[in-house]
Design a binder for these strands. Structure first.
Ligand code: SF4
Ligand code: SF4
Lengths: 143, 143
DNA sequence: TCTTATTAGGACAAAGTAATCCTAAAAGAG
DNA sequence: CTCTTTTAGGATTACTTTGTCCTAATAAGA
């Protein structure tokens, strides 16, 4: 459904949404330790997200990554799109080219509604709203 | 969600369920053409399924693959399990190790119910029942 | 029995994904 | 101004998945 890379990216972005601000930047290494993944690899992902302005960054001592309030309002799906591209999200279980509700594949009715709902959730909820639930203790980050 | 390999396998098995019988075996090449994928690759998948007795086979002229009535009663999920293993099915969107409904990740409530439903559908419906819908024209194979 | 068509199996090749490493550029601190 | 810390970016490596190819085994039919 999602690549490992975008799982990492989602985790990292939500970590930033919860813990960072423009005056409290967070280093790639710290995030990597918190969400338990190789820090050079995460650094790459953050660079990619930074290029697309979904995370902001600053170099040098006291530098690091953070999310602007505007970035936090963007849907979480954006993160996935940037890392995985849209192809991965668009292709379906049986990977048929010309399928539709008129010409559904055998598992269409088992799968399509779920897939649609999943996408919608990620599309209609902002990074901030997912982060809010972490802050309130309703959901948890990493382990 | 599913690997390409298991998509192919599901397609091939359903093709066999619809078109084959012990007295009407189907060659790997014919299936590959029908569902449009490289035939040596499909042959490998069919071999794997054959080792696990989900498809039956016979060599030589007039040989080919077919499904026994017993095999058709097995849940479609079996095919996926054989090709992808259980790991892939068990791991979840954010890939957390110790998550649960008590310690859910931020996307748990968007995702877990859908994932469960999908698995259940594949688990509770036999190959035959999916094939039945193809025969009745309710669903379609490939394109 | 001999030939031929087909599956079985293993070795191999290509592509895609995940992860590492090294050097450059920027920015704060002294 | 210089040193240090941190991100940026490219090159490289490793691993996994996908796909190919060649040979052996098997079974039918002439
Ligand atoms: S589940 Fe529906 S949309 Fe997905 S491949 Fe099958 S027919 Fe197409
Ligand atoms: S969605 Fe639920 S089950 Fe899946 S990783 Fe998140 S917490 Fe775990």
């Amino acid at each position: 459904m999602l690549s490992s890379s975008s799982k990492y990216a989602v985790n990292a972005v939500l970590y930033l949404a919860v813990h960072s601000s423009q005056i409290n930047k967070i280093r790639a290494k710290e995030i990597a330790e918190a969400i338990k993944l190789p820090s050079p690899f995460l650094a790459k992902l953050l660079q990619t997200l930074s290029r697309e302005n979904i995370v902001s960054s600053s170099k040098g001592p006291t530098g690091g990554f953070y999310l602007t309030p505007e970035a936090q309002q963007r849907p979480l799906l954006e993160v996935v799109k940037i890392i995985d591209g849209t192809d991965r999200l668009d292709e379906c279980v049986l990977g048929l080219k010309k399928c539709s509700s008129e010409k559904p594949c055998p598992v269409h009715f088992s799968v399509q509604p779920l897939k649609k709902t999943f996408r919608k959730e990620l599309e209609e909820n902002s990074i901030a709203s997912f982060a809010e639930k972490v802050k309130s203790g309703e959901t948890y980050l990493f382990v």
